[in-house]
């Protein structure tokens, strides 16, 4: 397990975060530092708490204990208004894109600019068209409704919305889920390109190992609510961790046991 001390203030720091739903303990002492402009991919099986961890950082869920800092600022001490200011620095690509059905594509992309940053609709639309171009979509797509888009196009629009405000931090929640391998590859390349262009810090959660290898500078493996290994992406195949080895090979045999209900 690689564990080098942080040379400067982490962009995002989670320390001993716990979160439960009723009797079900999801995060059980989750700790992770993400440095500025670093792209960290968190891998782990379904139901291990990856999405819950992201929602805790975004303030959508309240952890029971633990500390979450962004740029050294403790999020639990912020008022709702201050929290919204922090969220304005964050872009998020949801698993199913979470586009607003009632708005055309360009307004989805420009939403944070118009509503969050109070930009006028004209300039916001120009930026939206520019961001759509960055993810390989033409201006005429901007006039379509989200219901008219394919899965891959929805992800691209979601990505354009995530980068529209030139955020400092971008979260990607299973960006390639539900896409064919070629479209998955295209989305991965767009993510890498967009994150570099914006100069953002990125956290991606996925269980698609091919995608993880393409996106990550560093990987962390989440198991039973805590990080059991983290290190550079180049070390993932020589992690020396039986859980990581089983996960990346997708073997049914190993220390990770799938919880199956007895018949």
């Amino acid at each position: 397990m690689t564990n080098t001390p942080a040379p400067k203030t982490p962009k995002i720091r989670l320390k001993d975060v716990h979160k439960s739903f009723g009797d079900k303990r999801i995060l059980q002492g989750f700790s992770l530092d993400v440095m500025p402009q670093e792209s960290v991919v968190i891998i782990g099986g379904s139901g291990t708490g990856k999405s819950v961890m992201l929602k805790c950082i975004l303030g959508l869920l309240e952890p029971e204990s633990g500390e979450i800092d962004i740029d050294g600022v403790r999020l639990s001490t912020l008022s709702r208004g201050e929290r919204e200011q922090v969220n304005a620095k964050i872009g998020m690509l949801f698993q199913n894109a979470a586009l607003f059905d009632s708005l055309p594509v360009w307004e989805n992309v420009a939403f944070g600019l118009i509503q969050g940053k109070k930009m006028r609709r004209g300039p916001a639309k120009e930026i939206a068209i520019e961001k759509l171009a960055q993810v390989g979509l033409t201006a005429d797509v901007g006039a379509l409704s989200p219901a008219e888009l394919s899965g891959g196009m929805r992800k691209r629009v979601g990505l354009a919305r995530a980068i529209a405000g030139d955020p400092d931090i971008i979260f990607f929640d299973e960006p390639t889920t539900g896409l064919d391998p070629i479209m998955g590859h295209v989305i991965d390349e767009l993510i890498v390109k967009c994150v570099k262009q914006v100069g953002a810090t990125a956290i991606t959660i996925t269980h698609d190992m091919a995608s993880a290898r393409r996106i990550a500078d560093r990987m962390a493996m989440l198991y039973q609510g805590k990080v059991i290994w983290h290190g550079p992406v180049t070390n993932i195949d020589n992690s020396g961790n039986a859980y990581v080895e089983q996960f990346i090979t997708g073997s049914a045999e190993g220390p990770i046991k799938m919880e199956l209900r007895k018949l």
Binding site: K55, L58, L60, Q85, F94, F111, G112, Q115, G116, R161
Partner: peptide
């Protein structure tokens, strides 16, 4: 959730 992340 997306609204919250877009500061709305």
């Amino acid at each position: 959730d997306a609204l919250e992340t877009l500061s709305t």
